[in-house]
């Protein structure tokens, strides 16, 4: 269980990104974080693996205090938390294989990894990860030769190399064509069914209804909602997104079963 307690983040320029946010995530949940751009979703996800250090508050993973971890402890914690990004964050000039293998750096022998030497079992693991997202045939392509949807799948494969218990997905479909959103989210849904906890920020409400097992909503860094997806009615929607908001459907043409 992941427990976030009174999490607050104030950036050096004075922006208050998170205010006293608290919530729990049970193992195996598909938790979706919603809110407007700038509401603190990205900051929240990055505080969980401490890509951003919170100003105050605690994050416990079972009995482990992530917020108090030393740099080497933190690296060990991060190995078990995969992350998927809005902009994919692949090294564009490197091959797909190298990008996927780099997800394993936390486990690899530091010296061999700097020489670019990977044991055969790790290469096999990388191929297997690529097979899980259906692009094993692209292993030797340069990352920037792939389409956006394929690049995000490489991003997921890279996270899989960590054999993570938690996957943080920061707007994983916001840079993709809406029609590709379901394709990517279905991979995350499958990983969730395989036992991984998924914490994902999303924009489109119909995607939230389709994939989330539970939802929290942020507005100006404050948690304004926590509950089941079906509890977000019209009134809640207006409360989270403001009076001017209009719901946009991500995929009105084809909704998967």
């Amino acid at each position: 269980m992941l427990s976030v307690q009174n999490l607050t983040k104030v950036y050096p320029n004075g922006t208050q990104a998170l205010k006293e946010v608290s919530f729990d995530v049970q193992d195996g949940e598909f938790l979706v974080v919603i809110g407007l751009s700038g509401s603190g979703k990205s900051t929240l996800l990055r505080c969980i693996n401490r890509l951003i250090d919170p100003t105050s508050g605690k994050i416990f993973w079972d009995d482990l205090d992530i917020t108090a971890a030393s740099p080497s402890e933190l690296r060990h914690i991060r190995r078990h938390i995969g992350m998927v990004f809005q902009q994919f964050n692949l090294v564009k000039r490197s091959s797909v294989m190298t990008n996927v293998l780099s997800g394993r750096l936390g486990y690899a022998n530091p010296w061999l990894s700097l020489l670019g030497i990977w044991p055969a079992e790790e290469k096999q693991r990388a191929i297997h990860a690529l097979e899980r997202v259906g692009i094993a045939d692209k292993a030797q392509s340069r990352a920037d030769a792939l389409s956006g949807g394929q690049q995000q799948r490489v991003g997921i494969a890279r996270a899989l190399m960590q054999e993570p218990k938690i996957i943080l997905a920061d707007e994983p479909v916001a840079s993709l064509d809406p029609v590709l959103s379901h394709s990517i989210l279905q991979y995350l849904e499958q990983l969730n069914k395989d036992g991984m906890t998924v914490i994902c920020s999303l924009h489109f409400l119909d995607l939230v209804h389709r994939y989330a097992t539970r939802v929290i909503a942020l507005k100006d860094g404050i948690k304004v909602f926590e509950g089941l997806p079906k509890e977000i009615d019209r009134a809640k929607f207006k409360e989270i997104y403001g009076e001017d908001a209009q719901e946009v459907r991500a995929t009105s043409l084809e909704a998967p079963a």
């Binding site: 890509l51 991060r78 990004f85 692949l90």
Partner: peptide, 21 residues
């Protein structure tokens, strides 16, 4: 592009590995 640095930090790679990859 700072994205890949962030991504590799998130995997638990150390500083030298992050720079190298």
């Amino acid at each position: 592009d700072p994205g890949p640095i962030e991504a590799l930090q998130a995997t638990g790679a150390n500083r030298i590995q992050t720079v190298w990859y």
